[in-house]
């Protein structure tokens, strides 16, 4: 293929992946459990934000109900283990499949809606599912599901005595999501998605069935977010509708991408690397209520001052001008 517009020089991507791989070696040197947990959250929310970014970034559709898919993933693992005593690894098939199915069913009518109406509709859909779960006995209704604790088992996907296993699984998942984003960005499929984002009518005029493309990417996105939910379930070992499907989780999923840059490959990772340690720090120093209030303020600041996210702002200001000069 001819050379393309890379968002950044290739070295930057290599550096980012290098840094990630380096985090694989660091724990060997010895890290406190606290830092491992912070990093685990960083990986988890970078991963789901990368998943959310697949739809939001490539096609420009802002889904405000991703917590729904997160919860579906979490519950699929929880129900498989707690109700049927089936290995939670199987949830990596079941969870994404259900999430993708839901994305297909809900996407079909809602993709007709424009911008904010689409966002509102997805928000309301996630609320409907949340309320249904609160009343659904099969999944423990409002009480939720508590796991039977197993100290350390690869088969049962529980590593309570050593969180490093979660850490590595999270790291692998983030690398996988980055690879997936990279692959899509550099494919004709990805180009067509971006064409839809830039001008939907124009995309139709050159033969792109825009609805079908949006459905496919939203299913992939939902599947990825569901996988994040599985990891979350397996290390919290307790699920209830409010902790897995609420608006707070939606904010957790969307914020890293919004901060780092929607539509960039590294943005969600960068965003999570800033947000997660910051929020841990705030939670410990000033408590979780003020931490969430500050998160609200961060949302507003992003929209006011860096609406395109850190990556895009840096690229537009410093990197692109240099590339064009060359």
């Amino acid at each position: 293929m001819l050379t393309r517009s890379e968002l950044l020089p290739k070295n930057v991507y290599l550096l980012a992946v290098g840094l990630l791989v380096a985090t694989a070696v660091v724990p060997v040197v010895g890290l406190s459990n606290l830092i491992i947990d912070v990093m685990l959250d960083l990986f988890l929310f970078a991963f789901v934000s990368l998943g959310w970014n697949l739809l939001a970034g490539f096609t420009g559709q802002i889904n405000l109900g991703p917590a729904l898919y997160f919860g579906i993933g979490a519950y699929s693992a929880g129900v498989l283990f707690q109700t049927y005593r089936i290995t939670p690894w199987a949830a990596f098939v079941v969870g994404p499949a259900i999430a993708a199915g839901l994305a297909l069913i809900t996407g079909y009518p809602t993709f007709k809606l424009k911008g904010d109406y689409y966002a509102l509709a997805t928000l309301v859909i996630s609320q409907i599912v949340l309320l249904s779960f609160l009343a659904w006995d099969y999944v423990g209704a409002a009480y939720g599901l508590s796991y039977d604790i197993i100290p350390f088992s690869w088969y049962w996907f529980q590593f309570n005595t050593n969180h490093l296993a979660y850490y590595y699984i999270g790291l692998v998942m983030v690398l996988g999501a980055l690879g997936l984003t990279w692959r899509i960005r550099n494919s004709e499929f990805g180009l067509r998605l971006m064409a839809i984002r830039d001008d939907e009518e124009g995309a139709k005029s050159i033969g792109i069935n825009t609805l079908r493309y949006k459905l496919v990417i939203s299913m992939i996105s939902a599947g990825v977010i569901a996988m994040g939910g599985i990891l979350y379930a397996q290390y919290t070992l307790y699920l209830d509708p409010n902790s897995t499907m609420s608006l707070t989780i939606t904010a957790d999923i969307a914020l890293p991408a919004l901060l780092g840059g929607v539509g960039t490959i590294l943005g969600p990772l960068l965003g999570a690397a800033i947000i997660q340690p910051l929020e841990w720090l705030l939670r410990f120093t000033i408590g979780s209520n003020l931490q969430l209030a500050i998160r609200g303020a961060i949302f507003m600041m992003i929209v006011l001052f860096i609406p395109r996210g850190i990556m895009q702002t840096v690229v537009d200001k410093y990197i692109r001008p240099k590339m064009v000069k060359k």
Partner: peptide, 16 residues
């Protein structure tokens, strides 16, 4: 969408 996000942020802020 930016407008929706800013009022969403405002909500988080006020409520918390």
């Amino acid at each position: 969408v930016a407008q929706l996000l800013i009022t969403f942020g405002l909500t988080l802020f006020i409520q918390n």
